[in-house]
């Protein structure tokens, strides 16, 4: 397993005081809290910070961690030293943390932490359930909700889609160990879902304890970047390239949309940036969004003598045309 450098994670020196550690934790947890932060990997960082603080704030755990020595590097392959027993006194507490129904979102712990500080719990369970079985019978709690991010294509929102997701779920083995298990679920993506919304899959979170039901799984939806379309809330935009004469004279042009190809009428006298709306052809929903073509005038290259002379003819023909009139100054 990988060594975790809790001091680096917390951004403090190895001899930092408890106050320094607390201050740094407060600051970093505000910065990386997934509900507030726009940082990439905010959730992973928040978990790391929480784990580091759980060890460094507790004098016993911190002393045990310090015993490992200062020469370890983050990510280095690590095995606990023989006779390691720092976690023994915490027997049983891991159970509540892993399966408890409190607001324990974003609280997953690394293998490194589990091995160093939760061993006592695993051995206390023992073959046949023992202690863990006892607490299971007397304790009811709803399973923890889980959160994951999901990237979908814009087309999935237009048509609805089916997706399969693999989740790593911690589970109690018969020996009372917490073991990760891969769990596969197939679910429907609701039509009209927008980026930033959440898909709720009821009962797909962590299992409950005793009479408590399973938690829910919440999927935070993001769209993959699309080569053609941009999305703003429930409206969808696409740049539509047209020739200068199509802009000036008007034209019927064929263009793709997420719901199929359409023929669109470019009105005469259109300028670049003009938006042509297809009402109700944005993302579906009770109030469907609109689809917009944004006109882009593209100009043929003057790469032959005849093309050049044609453009030179335009210079003469449009001698009074002042494209930068609005900018003021010399034409």
């Amino acid at each position: 397993m990988e060594f975790k450098d809790y001091y680096t994670t917390m951004g403090v020196a190895r001899d930092a005081s408890a106050d320094d550690i607390k201050r740094s934790y407060r600051k970093l947890s505000r910065k990386f809290h997934p509900d507030v932060s726009k940082e990439k990997n905010a959730e992973a960082r928040f978990k790391e910070i929480g784990e580091a603080y759980e060890v460094l704030k507790d004098p016993e755990k911190r002393a045990a961690y310090d015993q490992l020595g200062a020469n370890w590097k983050a990510g280095q392959d690590f095995r606990p030293p023989p006779g390691w027993n720092a976690g023994a006194e915490h027997a049983g507490r891991g159970f509540e943390r892993e399966f408890g129904g409190d607001a324990g979102d974003f609280a997953g712990r690394s293998d490194f932490f589990e091995t160093l500080f939760r061993q006592g719990f695993a051995s206390a369970g023992g073959p046949g359930g023992g202690q863990a079985g006892g607490s299971r019978a007397s304790f009811n709690a709803t399973g923890e909700d889980r959160h994951a991010k999901i990237q979908i294509d814009l087309e999935d929102s237009y048509s609805g889609a089916t997706r399969t997701l693999k989740l790593r779920v911690p589970e109690m083995s018969e020996q009372g160990h917490v073991v990760p298990r891969e769990h596969q679920i197939t679910f429907t993506i609701p039509k009209g879902i927008r980026a930033g919304q959440h898909i709720r899959l009821a009962g797909q979170g962590a299992p409950g304890i005793g009479e408590g039901g399973a938690g829910d799984l919440y999927l935070d939806v993001e769209f993959n970047t699309h080569a053609l379309y941009r999305v703003d809330k429930h409206d969808v935009y696409m740049d539509l390239p047209i020739a200068p004469w199509e802009a000036a004279l008007g034209a019927d042009v064929e263009a793709p949309t997420p719901t199929g190809r359409v023929e669109v009428t470019v009105p005469s006298g259109s300028a670049a940036g003009r938006k042509l709306r297809l009402k109700g052809r944005g993302l579906p929903g009770s109030t469907p969004g609109d689809f917009y073509f944004v006109l882009q005038v593209v100009v043929p290259a003057a790469d032959t003598d005849s093309a050049k002379s044609f453009y030179e003819g335009m210079v003469k023909h449009f001698s009074s045309f002042t494209p930068r009139a609005k900018l003021g100054g010399q034409p």
């Binding site: 197939t186 679910f187 609701p190 919304q197 959440h198 898909i199």
Partner: peptide
């Protein structure tokens, strides 16, 4: 988790629209 449940198709709801 029963095996059936694992392979059943689950209907997703848009949290914000419930």
């Amino acid at each position: 988790m029963t095996p059936d449940k694992q392979f059943a198709r689950i209907t997703g709801f848009i949290l914000e629209e419930q």
